[in-house]
Design a protein around this nucleic acid. Sequence first.
DNA 1: ATGAAAGCGCTAACAA
DNA 2: TTGTTAGCGCTTTCAT
Lengths: 321, 321
Amino acid sequence: MARLAGVSTATVSRTLSRPEKVGAATRARVMQAVAATGYRLNAAARDLRQRRARAITLLAPNLANTYFSRIVAAVQEVAGAAGLRVQLLDSQVESDRLGPVGSDGRTDGILLLDGGLDPEIVRGWTVPVVMVCEWMDALGLPCVGTDNVAAMGLAVDHLADLGHRRIAWIGGPPGNVLSAARAEGFTAAMTRRGLPLRDRDRLTGDFTMASGACAAHLWAATPERATAIACASDESALGFISECDRMGLACPRDVSVAGFDDIDFSERFIPPLTTVHQPRAALGRRAAEQLIAALESGEPPPAGRQILPSRLVVRGSTRAV
Amino acid sequence: MARLAGVSTATVSRTLSRPEKVGAATRARVMQAVAATGYRLNAAARDLRQRRARAITLLAPNLANTYFSRIVAAVQEVAGAAGLRVQLLDSQVESDRLGPVGSDGRTDGILLLDGGLDPEIVRGWTVPVVMVCEWMDALGLPCVGTDNVAAMGLAVDHLADLGHRRIAWIGGPPGNVLSAARAEGFTAAMTRRGLPLRDRDRLTGDFTMASGACAAHLWAATPERATAIACASDESALGFISECDRMGLACPRDVSVAGFDDIDFSERFIPPLTTVHQPRAALGRRAAEQLIAALESGEPPPAGRQILPSRLVVRGSTRAV
DNA sequence: ATGAAAGCGCTAACAA
DNA sequence: TTGTTAGCGCTTTCAT
């Protein structure tokens, strides 16, 4: 191919990567030969030579989740525009598959959406890491997220403003940093508003609709049951309301419910869900930009939490008691 | 590192890839040196040498969509188990970014979830391609999907069995192969059941909740309006029902609605949505297996459509007229 | 069982 | 402006 154009491989390389660095006549000849042979540059070889992968890895638990997919889409958009490929990996796989990821030369950086990983594994990675939404206390990694404690407080305040005094809690999976922060926000706000924290009103969940549905039964069986529910996720809120409906209890008639996340379906649920909006696309975008900037500058991404604003969205699932 | 163990790089390579091919003493020495230096095999270099990418690319429109994300997760699972990385790409990006994808040495195969791509681009790819859900008539590509025509018929039959005679249709985006097949299924079933196909009952949509909501207004304004709606997607069905609710019309009291896809939220919607189940995880899994088998055998994946079964799931959104 | 040598396909210095 | 040379870090014959 290089010989067909009568030039060296170096010239072909130059023509393709920086055409202005090459004579017009030569360029024409090379381009012609390229067209004639159907030559395709082997990006893998170029990447090896330049010692970069031109790819970033997105590591998340539960890729099927609608919460993550919006983030993934935003990341892909930003990375794609920067010429980087996005590789997807489920963070729940065996940890011996996770170790090599950050140091096998096939990725330039990692976007970590799972705060539950073994810190030792993360520490072993040699590429820059930016966390999204979740974080790890053990490591001082840069993180793009929201203020979950304050945000959860918004929801509780809203319920309290509506006159609710007995407010129950459907939490997230134990051990998860978001669960902990949101639970803390719930407790703090309840205390601040002088509302009772009854043990029987603390229901555990795992962010899923199934867990919300399960909680509905527990709630319904509670003596002097709560008049409002604050949930650690929209999915559990939706599951809760749905199960209530099946039990003949209606939201907001019999119980007010507030969610957390503002996933796409919440707005269209019946009733539409009052919830705390998480700017998922912005989170993904910002994290990706952060990581890419670090790759381009060669400096590590700015450590510390970067907080994006979240806000309460009041809809039909909550009403005055 | 090789010199630290007092062996050649070839031996290190052997020790790491096929330990049994190397003497026990040497192996021990190498492993020790590996541990001491924190040596990491550079997968990119290995892949170049072996002329493979150890990765497959998933090309889909609208990565944020919950319909796709389940497929993505299944693909990742299968590919991960086979030691392949999954790269994500939005098929809606400029086509000049799509061309190189299938022939730049950075991917071994492509899973294509978008039937709307320019066939010329696809034809230019040099790696094997398997289509998922959608297909392209112009190319004889292997495809894993469901029988959309028959499946849509299931939904119409169900509505007809319930006594509905005026059944409206909310379609998908024009030009999409799934839209066409599902519309065909609707029309065929209506005809077969001897039901009237009125122009005013054919509403177009684009699979989204917003389009379903929009259709609700059109439907409500129709004289002698339909008593049932068949939708080309769950999202549009949910949007329709939700908007009806806002207009003071209830499902299934005032209108029966059937969806298509059986996304996770449909089961928990109020009312739970009657719909046609699409085995999304199985589709993703099967397609990935198909592609990977082709990569391992060196033979192209079996051409032709591979049909996975779909079934009607009757829930609360439909009832006798 | 191990080592030497030759690349995979490209790019980056350095010369010319 | 263009060619020559030397690798990127690995695997893989082919010898030994």
